[in-house]
Each structure stands twice: as C-alpha cells, then as structure tokens.
Design a protein around this nucleic acid. Structure first.
Length: 261
DNA sequence: ATGGCTCACATCGTGAGA
C-alpha cells in the first residue's frame, strides 16, 4: 500500500498533471491513495467524472478560491468525515476516510502568514484542535496516517537557509512544538525520517527567484504514521519529477509505502 | 531589494501563498 500527498495549488490547473502522474511508472502508478490539497475549487466544480472514468474513487471537501482537500483512491473509501469535528472552521482543510482498513487524514494546515498575524493565531488554534482530533482518531483507529501540507518544517535540516527563516512562520518554536507533540505524545512517526535520506531534500520550492533550480526549498509536506502502523512502513520518499513539469505546482508529491499489515 | 512567481476573481489590480 502506497500513500502519497501532493499540494497541487489549483486542481483546475493541475488536473492533467495529477492523472498523468498516477499513470507514470516512475511516479504515482503504484500509488493506492493520493491526498490532495489546495484544490481551490468548490464541490460543484470538482472533476468527479474525470477521476471515476480513470477508475479512481474520490472523497472531497472543496472551497471556492482557497483551500480544499481530497482523497483519491484505487480502493473504496469508507466513513468519510469532513473537517475537524472538534473545531468549527469555514475553511476546508481536512478530510478523513478509511481505505484498506487504514484511517487516513488528509490535511492542509494553515500558512500563518507572519508571527504577528491573526492568521498565525488561527494556525495555532487549528493545530491545537488537530491534536485533539488526532488523539481521538488514533484511539479509535490504531492504524492511522496523517498526510498533507503541514506548512511546518520540523527541523533546520528541512530548511534551505535556516538563518533566513529566523522569525518567520513554518519554523517557529510554537509550530514545531505542535509537530513534535504529535510524535512524542501521540506516538506518530515522520515516515520520511525513518529512513536514510539524501541531504537537502525538500517538498516545496518558491516559484520566484529560480527557487527550484537553486534548490531553495522547505520540507513541509509530510506523511505521519501511527505507532501501530509505522513498523510496517518500508520506504518514504519525495518525487521531485512533477516539480519539473511545465506549469508545475510549487509542491512535489511525498510518498510512503507500507507492507501488508 | 518585502521584490521576484502563480493562482483566483462576476479579473485587467489585488490578496494569498510559503
């Protein structure tokens, strides 16, 4: 079972790239479940038939212009929940479903904008509420995955130039503390860090200033596995190829493979 | 250098992303 996560920055613009990636032998052809973020379209405009005609099942929570998340699966999706039941939120940032007996939460964490911003207060409240939801879900579903765009770089190794990010969002102690509480208090593993990895591997690169060409990126997209599921994780990696596409998303897909459990 | 690039909007300049 391979689970992937990809912030597509507009499903309208990236739809053909998503479908092509899901048939690419060196890309997503073996992916069982793909978590998408930043659909930037309302449910009425979700390209449902495009996915179903490709043999893919979907569950989605769309929103006009901003946010929006979806589960794309080659297997049936059960017991779908939209948003965090413990957090009233007009923004569509969470969708949860059960696939092959694994509970999967697809998440688009808030950006936060700046440490002084109201949006940062929202980000911290959202993170706090997510912790509560995760604690409940991992109790109910011991085999749990949290995959998505976390908008948090957990460590300085996940930042191309830590000094330049001093005082900015994505690297603040408050955000990182939430990330590590998922690990230390709830028992999740960052699947990427379970394995030897090449240095300076990122999942997002700024469109501006030749960010990708210069590998000026952040590792902010993650696949976390619960303590019960993590021992079955065999591999975790980033597929940078779609970031080289014409009109790419600024994020690349991240993947994790699990053996039979 | 607070810009750069990309996306969406009852679009043609502005807000948001990270």
């Amino acid at each position: 079972m391979i689970v992937a996560s990809w912030n597509v920055n507009s499903l309208n613009v990236r739809l053909s790239q998503v479908l092509e990636w899901l048939t690419s032998p060196q890309g997503g052809a073996q992916v069982d479940v793909l978590c998408l973020q930043e659909l930037k379209l309302s449910d009425e405009k979700f390209p449902l038939t495009t996915f179903t005609q490709a043999g893919l099942q979907v569950a989605y929570a769309g929103q006009k212009t901003y946010n929006g998340v979806a589960l794309v699966s080659r297997h049936p999706i059960h017991d779908v929940v939209i948003n965090n039941p413990f957090f009233e939120d007009p923004q569509r940032r969470l969708i949860t479903g059960t696939i092959n007996n694994i509970r999967i939460i697809c998440a688009y964490f808030p950006n936060g904008e700046a440490l002084e911003s109201q949006k940062f207060i929202y980000k911290l409240a959202w993170l706090d509420a997510l912790h509560g939801y995760l604690a409940e879900q991992v109790r109910l579903f011991p085999k749990l995955i949290l995959a998505g765009d976390f908008n948090i770089a957990p460590a300085d190794d996940d930042v191309y130039n830590p000094a330049a990010f001093e005082g900015l969002t994505h690297v603040s102690p408050q955000e990182r503390a939430h990330f590590f509480r998922f690990i230390e208090e709830l028992g999740f593993k960052d699947t990427y860090r379970m394995f030897e990895q090449a240095a300076k591997t990122y999942t997002w690169w700024d469109y501006r200033n030749l960010g990708f060409k210069k590998n000026q990126g952040l590792r902010i997209d993650h696949i976390l596995a619960s303590s019960v599921l993590a021992p079955y994780c065999r591999r975790a990696w980033v597929d940078k190829a779609p970031r080289k596409n014409l009109k790419p998303s600024d994020h690349a897909p991240v993947l994790a493979e699990f053996s039979e459990h």
